[in-house]
Design a protein around this nucleic acid. Structure first.
Lengths: 349, 349
DNA sequence: GTCACTGTCGGGAGCGCTCCCACACACCGT
DNA sequence: ACGGTGTGTGGGAGCGCTCCCGACAGTGAC
């Protein structure tokens, strides 16, 4: 009832107080804080001392009100927390982004947009008054988010090439991607050159760029060996452990003669290994397995997974750097980066 | 050079414009937006229509400047991205928090404070002008963060009882915890009643509340069976897969007669299973294993893990609700919540 | 000595909002 | 007729900052 609200103006020192203490004007303090060169060394020293003595911290709301910047960027992941935290892939991305952001004033917001409530919330906060730029990860085909963000005039960088534009030669705005198709092709080539002949694949979601491109790579390798498409050898998953297990069972029931599988994600591969073991097959003697991602699960499976390594942290860094350049308008509108992948040989193939 | 800065005032409608359009004063619009009852239905309707027509969105920087609220809360995890994303535990917490926050105006900030650079950054942003409250997770003993946050007058809720106050009867501020000791005790009891006699444990970090309490539970169960402490049977890990593997190897070398292990985290248990398999032992026939957490890894190990389930999502919800109550000053200073744990029997014990 | 120029600096204006005071107006009882 | 009591309402003040204009001193060229 009579709970007195905290006084209107709290004890926190303001620019004005710093100016008074340093014996200079408000403008000079502001210039010192913002690193202007138009300040004499003497004034600068006085201001810096006053700031230290008072423990002054600039009020960001006030600054943001006039500059119309927020010094925050958002990373939006169109996945559930389950997957966001379940897959080490995202950890790498976040690490890369943080490290690239460390010497900018920008703070990173992390948001997931899975449930309707979450999406609504995220959309409400993806405005120029909340963030200066947006990075979108794990985008599905029909996602309206990129359109919304661009329409609001917010700088945008995509992680992974949008699915519909996965064929080269099409402008797609700004994105960072890895060479998914090339990595998949090399993985399958590796299986062929190891003497495998009936090579199946567990592909990812076909509404995602990475899912499409990795399946493309598989096809390319087959074509390179003069082989026709065999739909029997293709099963689909959603990058999860369970979906990998299920898909592997399906493949084995359709084609018991399979002697190798290329699997579009390590986590699915872990599930597939389980299904293979359950079916009594030995990896790699009976069936060779190659995964994709080279996340920590690849080292924890039994046997350890041969997989396609992608420079995840680099990808995060590239995204952040591209966004920063975009925000400061130092970059052409259709730039993009595609990073290389490499095959890591372990025990499973 | 001559890149014209975007005009000072962008096209976005302001409160004033809405007021003009609705034919009312600024104050009335503000009242409508903030849900005051002191507005006539006619005025309210006119304002709402004007807002819709103009697509007006309140400027949060301006609001925050005067209200001194930010409508954001932070969740700080004192871990690397590696662990934050590697352990499903955190996913559950975040999910619980988000769901509890969904019908408040509060937005969730997620930050990790591991490296020095990150910590410095986090500390700089943990001020009343950035966030309205803070939740701290995975706290180590000597962490200065709680002190800092409280000193700045920010509402604070801890996830997990602070290590130093892990003994009951000591006030510890606001925290949410699960009954770690009780869960551990029941797990070990289960092993004893299954006829196991040489029961080892892999404990967690002893500077963390959860690590301490779970080891306490192990001791309690032994005491309950009239057994003396045998340091040989205790090894320590840091909750990671690798540390579990290493600790298990150490235990087996010290005491080859071990016929059961209680392990303070599922991920460590997964590592331990690997070490047991490498040593030629069969689980559960030769050695029974019980984990702790009941995260998704528990279902993916071979054999599936018997483990102590903790209501992770509930814990997140409780933390968020406690923080909200704290922010609105509707809660005594030393409240806390301790949630129950249950044993989930699978294949490993 | 005058003028132009450069390097510093102070402080007014104003960002968009909330808070709150003053006031208009209706309605009531006396 | 009057004052009292409420309910709605308008708009001034001010949150803490940046932007920018104008002032001023010092320097060098003429």
């Amino acid at each position: 009832m009579s709970t007195s609200r905290s006084t209107r103006t709290d004890g926190r020192p303001t620019l004005e107080k710093v100016a008074a203490r340093a014996g200079v004007g408000r403008g000079t303090v502001s210039r010192v804080i913002n690193g202007s060169t138009q300040v004499s060394p003497a004034a600068k020293a006085a201001v810096e001392q006053a700031i230290a003595e008072l423990g002054y911290v600039p009020n960001l709301a006030a600054r943001s009100l006039v500059t119309r910047r927020t010094d925050a960027v958002a990373l939006v992941v169109s996945e559930s927390e389950e997957r966001l935290f379940g897959e080490p892939f995202f950890a790498g991305i976040v690490r890369g982004i943080s490290s690239a952001l460390v010497d900018t004033p920008l703070q990173l917001w992390l948001a997931m947009a899975q449930s309707a409530a979450e999406r609504e919330r995220v959309e409400r906060h993806l405005t120029p008054q909340h963030v200066d730029g947006v990075m979108l990860l794990s985008l599905h085909d029909a996602d309206p988010l990129p359109g919304l963000v661009e329409q609001r005039g917010l700088p945008l960088v995509l992680g992974g090439r949008p699915a519909r534009l996965t064929r080269p030669g099409v402008a797609a705005g700004r994105f960072v991607d890895v060479d998914n198709a090339g990595g998949a092709r090399r993985a399958v080539e590796h299986l062929y050159s190891a003497g495998r002949r009936v090579i199946a694949t567990i592909a990812g979601p076909q509404d995602m760029g990475a899912g499409l491109a990795r399946l493309d790579g598989y096809h390319e390798a087959r074509v390179g060996h003069g082989l026709l498409n065999e739909p029997d050898l293709i099963a689909y998953g959603d990058f999860s452990y369970d979906s990998g297990k299920t898909a592997m069972k399906l493949l084995l029931s359709r084609r018991p003669d399979i002697d190798a599988v290329f699997i579009a994600a390590d986590l699915m591969a872990a599930g597939a290994l389980r299904a293979l073991r359950d079916s009594g097959r030995h990896v790699p003697d009976d069936v060779a397995v190659v995964g994709f991602d080279d996340t920590s699960v690849a080292r924890q499976t039994e046997p350890a997974l041969t997989t396609v390594h992608q420079p995840i942290e680099e990808m995060g860094k590239a995204m952040a750097r591209m966004l920063v350049a975009h925000i400061s308008e130092q970059i052409p509108p259709d730039s993009s980066a595609v990073l290389d992948t490499t095959l890591v040989i372990r025990e499973s193939a």
